[in-house]
Design a binder for these strands. Structure first.
Lengths: 251, 251
DNA sequence: AATATAGGAATGTCTGACAAAGCTCGTCAT
DNA sequence: ATGACGAGCTTTGTCAGACATTCCTATATT
């Protein structure tokens, strides 16, 4: 997720303040002109942020009109953002019944994990198949960034680092379809991680698992990679499934 | 793709003809009231149809205003449909530069094929892992439908049967994430198949390949399935890549 | 008390409009 | 004549306001 409203080029920052017939244009945060391209993305980033931070919880209803007022955008813009997020899987949409934050079905946890393993395996295969080693080098770069950022105290930053790492693996594979699929998987990961964070697990162990995963990739040994992936993804999902079905047995 | 405007429930088919303040409501096809829920889907189905039939070719520009007049919907509705199709990969979107029908990059053909093989393998694994055999039974059902419909003379029907077969495999696996990913893969398949049809290949052989594929699945032998998948997907992609790079070397 | 109906709330869609960015073509200077 | 520059057109991005349709809920009726 794009760093939550990354500062885009400031247009031609001159006489920007009155950009319409004269309607007051007050940006929620005091940031200067900031141009206006991509209001929709701002809405999306904001909703993602709220999901990650637990301000929006699975199953919670989202109403277009509320976004309109709380994010200072028009209903069509809010609508487009919501439609996109529904398409990606962050939100569930039912005709005439509105949108809700996607819920975790316990049975789906393992299904998601299996597909993720399949795709991660494919990505890693393509990275290792690259004789030039360039893809692996790119992955090492991603890993370095992850190591420096993953320990951030800010839960939003930590989440983003984690997501970036996994997207980085797919990006390094340099596969067109993989990149098109990514948003859907990111959505599921985000929902799951938000849930996970709620149950607060050992972040040190999480880092160790990722480090072991990287070592396995460097070894080039497919079986070892598979094992590391199973530990990282399947075991983690299984653990969470137990936690969820054990403690929160109603939904 | 939903059978191109499947007849949904006809609302309360009474005084429907004048559904707004009095604006004339003429439906492009003469089908009765048909209510109105899901205008957006109608736009999407129509654009898909045009792509499959070659009325829209890769790279071709699509302008919102044109859809507005040719499909009798408002711009917001057309916009939402286009946004969704861009998200799925049917269209390519560039800010302030509009939408174009997605193009085939020769290098992407094999990338797409690899990911498809990975996901099909996963789907089939989950079908075969189902001890009850219910998933396999569902797949056989899908296959029967495919056999009876795939030989249709209508290229649109043939295309749809093919897509349905592959979606059916994923549906039979009954995996949540797989179903969320499907639209993205369908888009790529559609673009590729439209291209493929353009070069008109032996449809009898295509059917034979699918039949062999089904036999491999029934055998339960993973290696054999893998081989059949490679023949179906990888070889086919490779072949098409050669054809494309050989004949049409400019884009 | 159970069902039927009316009202409110939210979504789906429409019209019309303006702003911002890209594209085209004609003009001007070298 | 050629190439850089700028004006106008085109199209997308966004907005406001409105109405139709559907769902939900609470009230009224039998």
């Amino acid at each position: 997720m794009g760093a939550v409203a990354e500062g885009n080029e400031s247009g031609r920052g001159d006489e920007v303040e009155r950009n319409r017939t004269g309607r007051a244009v007050h940006y929620s945060s005091a940031r200067p002109p900031v141009s206006n391209t991509e209001r929709r993305q701002r809405v999306i980033d904001e909703i993602k942020r709220r999901i990650v931070l637990g301000e929006l919880t699975p199953g919670q209803r989202i109403i277009e009109a509320e976004l309109t007022s709380s994010l200072e955008v028009s209903r069509p813009t809010a609508r487009e953002a919501l439609n996109q997020m529904a398409r990606d899987g962050f939100l569930i949409q039912e005709a005439y019944r509105g949108l809700r934050v996607a819920n975790i079905e316990v049975e789906s946890l393992l299904e998601i994990a299996r597909v993720r393993v399949a795709l991660d395996t494919e990505a890693i295969d393509e990275i290792l198949d690259d004789a030039s080693g360039e893809r692996l080098a790119r992955l090492e770069e991603i890993w370095k960034r992850f190591e420096s950022e993953s320990s951030a105290a800010d839960p939003l930053a930590a989440h983003e680092a984690h997501i970036c790492f996994h997207r980085g693996i797919w990006e390094a594979a340099d596969n067109y379809l993989l990149m098109r699929i990514w948003p859907v998987v990111e959505a599921q990961m985000t929902i799951v991680l938000a849930y996970d964070q709620f149950t607060r697990r050992d972040s040190g162990r999480a880092h160790a698992i990722h480090a072991a995963f990287m070592r396995a990739i460097r070894s080039g040994d497919r079986a070892r990679i598979r094992t590391a992936l199973d530990v990282h993804t399947m075991d983690s999902a299984q653990e969470l499934a137990l936690l969820v079905s054990g403690s929160v047995d109603r939904h």
